[in-house]
Write a protein that binds this DNA or RNA. Structure first.
Lengths: 237, 237
DNA sequence: GTCATCATGTAAGCCGTTACATGATTGC
DNA sequence: GCAATCATGTAACGGCTTACATGATGAC
């Protein structure tokens, strides 16, 4: 999950570790945030694998000066030439093209758990429309299977034979689970619908998001869809 | 989480590992189920710690012959004396009184993550009403804090300065998260309400479960509330 | 007698956590 | 100059996963 999230973040812009942790916390929630003790080793692994490389801080746009400092501070910093100073202590990473291919793999990975799936969706604009739709449909199938299992043991089962009647708390847990499953299914269906509508009207016509003004047209370049890896043995469909 | 779940299961009745895995899968869902590779070592640790002990299979009621074999098969087995046979290959565990105290601790533990909380609720009938209520309220506080964070960054923020507008997929993930939080809050409120109503009418009057016929009066003995550990340094309050 | 299932375990490896150590920068 | 925060790392440890190995039991 970490690998996916880090590569996803770096597709937007080069970042240093500390900043990634912040953006990651925002993405998955403060409670589920990863610690430095796993973040930095993960970055090291990614670098060794050739998926990311460290870049000169000057290479990237001046914005991401870490969090809440206002734009003025960034401006100040940008004004003075800063020879080798101030960049000595930070390591800024950028994604490589191998890393982009790896990201595509991870985005398409079918074995993702619940939390990983959320991250896949968060970065799925980098998938082709077809792969994206497949990601959604696959998840949908799985959720329905889980829901079916819940219906199978319907909490208020008739006491047949040695079956223990579960107590109210255990029933409550089961019902909440079923409820959550249905809610996620509804949300997924919405996503899938949008996806198909967007597909029909091709990439020419801009969105028509069901609610909210945010236009989904990306500023090209950075947000381009990654090309599926042409691995011998089957592209990710 | 495993430790909590295993002790919780054993409070109902002695079980062997394979059977516990089944019941556990039912409890947390097949997808989130633990593997044998973690189950058996966990049982070993629990035994070494004195929280569980192996018992003679004859000691317990004949029911839990593993899964779907009908009652007739169980009857057949019970009929023949089975000296040392058939029990050679299974190790049946029972919870000790130290294990019950440990369970009480784990049920009250405030550092539980989402999945663990679900297990805590599933077995919280073993808590005192006060401790149970506190468990719920604590969770409630946390969920509201998380929700507040989501409101803070409202997806459709005005583009102030260097902030990137998140794309539709990322927004969708955030909105789903907020939705799920609200749903769990509502569910929790329901639980808390019931709890308080039950508290008012004391333990004399049976349930009044809001829906469904399942009576919540336990067959005493097995389902008794565990006594909080009288550790010097504060009871689990 | 053979296959599916029940049943228990071990070993290697990954990944994550906590705790610790260190040092730069900035605000006051 | 001091504290807070930014920033990067290491070390010890734990626990879970996958894969492997083994054997009993029951159905057909």
């Amino acid at each position: 999950m970490l690998e996916l999230a880090l590569l996803g973040l770096l597709t937007d812009q080069p970042l240093h570790g500390y900043e990634m942790k912040k953006q990651l916390s925002e993405l998955v929630g403060a409670r589920a945030a990863v610690s430095f003790g796993s973040l930095y080793p993960a970055l090291g692994r990614l670098e060794k694998a050739g998926y990311v490389r460290t870049v000169d801080e000057a290479d990237r746009p001046a914005l991401p000066m870490t969090g809440s400092l206002g734009a003025e501070v960034a401006a100040l910093r940008a004004r003075r030439p800063v020879a080798s100073r101030s960049r000595r202590t930070r390591k800024v990473y950028a994604i490589s093209s191998a890393g982009e291919q790896r990201l595509y793999e991870l985005l398409s990975d079918a074995t993702a758990d619940d939390r990983t799936f959320a991250v896949q969706v968060a970065f799925c604009r980098h998938l082709s429309p077809a792969a994206r739709l497949e990601l959604f449909e696959r998840r949908r199938t799985e959720l329905e299977a889980r829901l079916a299992l819940h219906v199978e043991q319907p909490a208020t089962a008739p006491a047949d034979g040695p079956e223990r009647r579960r107590d109210r708390y255990r029933n409550a847990v089961g019902e909440r689970e079923a409820h959550a499953l249905r809610a996620e299914l509804a949300w997924l269906d919405h996503l899938i619908d949008d996806e198909q509508q967007l597909g029909e009207s091709s990439a020419v016509t801009p969105p028509l998001t069901p609610a909210g003004p945010a236009p989904a047209v990306p500023p090209a370049g950075t947000d381009a869809v990654l090309t599926p890896t042409p691995v011998p043995g089957g592209s990710p469909r």
